[in-house]
């Protein structure tokens, strides 16, 4: 599976992680194009269902990226997001999926480098896990 290119969705909060992603671009720090970002006002807005739906639709990995602990612009949305991600990890475990297919990350607006690093590491991780069962089926359907 060396040429496997995973589909990865990243839900990023407007104030911190999305800005960090912009900064990675501004500084031309490259990270895998597998990562596609969906902007949300706050990671606390990311419903656990969204993570499941992303996997259902064929994402091989999904992560939520919010502000650093204590920096959330809406007090504690990032901690709620963490709880949602943890819940979905448990569900995946019950399903016999690798829980590592979902993750939570934290960046401040200035952490472009770290954003790229996180994207890289997550992509590597998913590559090593291989395609998700759903993406295989979706792939076959096309």
């Amino acid at each position: 599976m060396s040429n496997f290119e995973p589909e990865i969705v990243a839900f990023c909060c407007h104030y911190c992680a999305y800005t960090a992603a912009d900064m990675a671009g501004t500084r031309r720090i490259s990270y895998p194009s597998n990562v596609k970002i969906i902007r949300v006002p706050c990671t606390g807005k990311v419903d656990a269902i969204h993570l499941m739906k992303a996997l259902e639709k064929g994402a091989d990995g999904v992560y939520v990226a919010g502000c650093l602990d204590g920096d959330c612009h809406f007090k504690n949305g990032n901690l709620r997001a963490t709880a949602h991600v943890e819940k979905i990890k448990k569900v995946l475990e019950d399903l016999g999926w690798e829980p590592e297919r979902v993750a939570m990350m934290y960046f401040s607006a200035g952490m472009g480098e770290q954003f790229a690093q996180g994207a890289k590491e997550f992509t590597e991780k998913i590559k090593s896990l291989g395609p998700s069962p759903a993406s295989q089926t979706v792939g076959k359907a096309v």
Binding site: D47, A48, I49, M52, K53, L55, E56, V91, L92, D94, L95, G96, W97, P133, A134, T137
Partner: peptide
């Protein structure tokens, strides 16, 4: 409604697997 959505998603993912 939310738990219905989550469980349904989980059942679908399970069947795929």
């Amino acid at each position: 409604r939310k738990e219905v959505g989550l469980l349904s998603s989980a059942l679908r993912l399970h069947s795929v697997k």
